[in-house]
Amino acid sequence: MNKIFVIIASLFFVPLSLFAKWEEVRIGTEGAYPPWNGTNAAGELEGAEIDMATEICYRMGVKCTFVAQDWDGIIPALLNKKYDVIIAGMSITEERMEKVDFSIGYMTDGACLVVSKDSALASYQSELESVNLNNSDAATQKVVGSVVALLKGKKVGVQGGTIHQNFIEQYASSALLSTYSTQDDLNLDLGAGRVEIGLADCGAFDDYMSKKEGSNLTSVSPSMGGGPFGDGVGGAFRKEDDDLREMFNDAIKASLADGTISTIAKKWFGRDISM
């Protein structure tokens, strides 16, 4: 009888544990944002951030477990202590910093606009390859202006609660915005033609466009960064866990310095997006 009770109890409650010295760290990720973090056919998490986090945990000498969590609730679940850090392609923005603290950035990717090859929008050409919205020079202003003009009155899809949604709301409120709960859903609807323009990290689209279903899509805009797009991607921590954040910062610095993160980025993105 007692044995049965113990088995049932352990099914429900993983032992109450005190992590005084961070011997175990739980990492929250989405598992639906390849190549940052995705799920493969074996049901396992994979992606650049999964490789990177595994490497960082090895360097810190801690045991890490991954917890999959929908993007919708990814910050609330961190605050609720469901896991201890978010490594999920999350850009460092001031809005989020009101609730969480970030590690130093480890990778950064511009934001891209993607349209169907058949659409008239595909002929749009930008004068610059990439723009940083923090700059206020005339060339940047002109390109941003033309992007905003392109978005006007169009059906634009973004993942909800992202920097991309913020950009549309702040810069192009005249666009007809649809928000999706995952990047995969946005990709499916772009492929189906329900939205005319998709906005997300360039890498997230590259992955889809390289597949058969996404082959009719093309990226049109300059790659954009800065401003509402934030300052690169970092790990998010609860405000009180400064010690854990420092541990991550040291390990990230070391892996950036010796080129480990750069190697991982090249493997998954085909280009070096490490910071």
Partner: peptide, 17 residues
């Protein structure tokens, strides 16, 4: 975050299109 039928379906259909 529990991987029951619906979540698995979503993961699989997102990953395989």
């Amino acid at each position: 975050g529990l991987v029951e039928i619906m979540r698995q379906t979503h993961i699989a259909s997102g990953s395989t299109r």
